[in-house]
Design a protein around this nucleic acid. Structure first.
Lengths: 341, 341
DNA sequence: ATGAAAACTTTACGCGCGTTAAGTTTTAAG
DNA sequence: CTTAAAACTTAACGCGCGTAAAGTTTTCAT
């Protein structure tokens, strides 16, 4: 089989002119069915594909889509990224996946490098508190961007995420309905703005139900939440820092660390009579099903958050990269009852 | 500040001719220090960067490097990918990360798409047993490829991975030294060739030490190892399928499922007297520290596997994409004693 | 059959940069 | 100061494709 060098050559072999072949690759439906058939027939015989560099250099808009998550070693983001990737591919785009690995410099570098990719759009889950707002603002001004998971006020053309109030109200109400009101366990300086919303929601729900909020803040920086939760829980348990037998963790990864600490200390966690503690959490982390005990938690609406994010980005791209007004879409949580509370 | 359109314009503004500027971007050390200074001075004033599409179209070899892992939702691969990414960037390359998500079709599609990126090289951790060997073979013939983690006999210019015998011999010997000989717990049809090597190593070590190997194979397909381990363990425990009080899991993710099953069944795992079972495993998964109990396991030499992989790829690229002979490099495991055995 | 619209072909230019060739300036050694 | 090598400048071509203009063929409703 002859090696095809360029579109010129392929066009000749298929018996169609190059401009028409070019049109075909841009949109197969834009050419007559008979010529389309001839091109696709040749395509099967010769296996040619346009040089993406030449294509991208000349097209005003590439078919690239950037996907940026803050921490890919968290399976939660890996799963979301997977969904986003697949949706982009299905829509005929070329996704590129990036992880900021929890570091501001990396996030900045990624956005910087992304600009020279001239992407049609970007799906960005920012680091949050540790993001460099000015960098992200500048980026969003140049590239059609949809924020997801972590909201930065006013940045990006739209935000899609989860309704943190829905998470916390469901877990808190459940715990109160079935036992003592929970303390709230979180990091002192959370990386993610969702954490702040969850704390506020906790306070609001507790007060509305006539209970005094009790917040436990543990030290620790970065994205090693399990480690932070573990250390923090050991300290709290040693100091007898709990007011009731119920704890609500800000997120599942902290809870995983908390559960490990309880296990080490011989504290049985669960809703059965022989348990000393009930622990619930938020996120429905992929591993929450396999903690000991399995974790009662509020689940993200993965499918809707991811699905709506790509849909919104596609709308944004089709609208020429700008929306009239910035929208924020929040999906409610689904309470997942397991054994820990 | 004026917007720079292309290298021509930037060259004019910096007072240097375009071919020299082009040379500079290819290798800053290839121009005279004085001209280099003038270019970099202009670079600070004007913030210009070459159009990567035009660059890549014209250079014979791009600076792109593909990184392909089989399953990114496994934090093990996320961590490795992170290391590989950073090493590539540090060496002046542009890494692109892809996950096959456990599916052959996706792996094929990724390799297919990777070809049109004309990468300088690719770091590939294949799916293993479920890989389409012919596709990978064809790919490796066209693109300088270093395999890592999962070896496919004869494919790629080199393989870097862990010495599975070292893993299993250390865990088995430790368990025998400190208690009863372990059964080996694994999937019936493992996705990964490492699993087969581990089984063989188990049999060999057991026989050498004068014990009869006992292998427990559980059903389940795909990459949801925790779930498979969990279901399989429940079955084994229900059927009293263990010969001794010791179990060695083929990998940590299976062990995580196993531990969850034990917890549910009220079986205490650990090396203390009040424990009914000892469980060890292999990989030192990022979460192994936070299982209940924490997992005794054999750790990959992450740094060396990842480090040597990129080094080898760089050597390969500098050698023009071919090695005289295919090399296989295996790094030994490090036994990590925790509470489960 | 007729005409206009739609789709095609041919021709040609442009994108931004790599790269080469020929001529000029700078550098550093003698 | 001489001189040759090294580094530069100018000029020009090519990469593979998008795209526009002008002319030709096909299609399809009347």
């Amino acid at each position: 089989m002859t090696k095809i060098k360029n579109m010129e050559e392929f066009a000749a072999l298929s018996g169609i002119s190059r401009p028409t072949v070019s049109k075909y690759f841009h949109d197969p439906d834009s050419v007559r069915p008979t010529t389309r058939a001839r091109i696709e027939e040749a395509l099967e015989r010769f296996d040619y594909r346009p040089n993406i560099y030449a294509v991208n250099q000349n097209r005003k808009l590439t078919k690239n889509i950037g996907i940026v998550v803050p921490y890919l070693a968290d399976p939660f983001f890996a799963e979301i990224a997977r969904y986003l990737e697949q949706s982009c591919i299905a829509a005929g785009y070329r996704p590129s996946l990036f992880s900021s690995h929890g570091e501001q410099k990396l996030e900045n570098d990624i956005l910087d490098g992304l600009q020279s990719l001239k992407p049609a759009g970007v799906l960005l889950a920012p680091l949050g508190r540790t993001s460099d707002q000015s960098v992200i603002e500048r980026f969003c001004a140049n590239v059609p961007t949809v924020l997801f998971d972590s909201n930065l006020e006013g940045l990006g053309a739209a935000f899609i995420g989860s309704d943190n109030f829905s998470f916390v109200s469901q877990t808190v109400e459940y715990m109160i309905r079935t036992g003592e009101p929970p303390s709230f366990f979180e990091m002192r300086t959370p990386a993610n703005p969702n954490a702040n919303k969850r704390r506020k929601a906790y306070i609001e729900v507790m007060e509305r139900l006539g209970f005094e909020p009790h917040i436990i803040r543990v030290d620790g920086k970065g994205w090693a939440f399990e480690e932070i939760g573990h250390k923090g829980a050991l300290k709290v348990l040693a100091e007898n820092g709990l007011r009731t037998n119920s704890v609500l963790c800000s997120n599942d990864r902290l809870a995983i660390g908390f559960l490990a600490a309880c296990y080490e200390q011989g504290i049985r966690v669960g809703r059965r009579d022989d348990c000393a503690l009930r622990l619930a959490s938020n996120d429905d982390h992929p591993f929450a099903k396999f903690t000991c005990p399995s974790l009662t938690t509020a689940a993200h609406d993965y499918d809707n958050v991811a699905g709506r994010s790509v849909e919104t980005l596609f709308e944004l791209i089709e609208s020429g990269g700008k929306f009239e007004t910035r929208s924020e879409t929040l999906f409610p949580a689904r309470l997942v009852l397991r054994d820990s509370a």
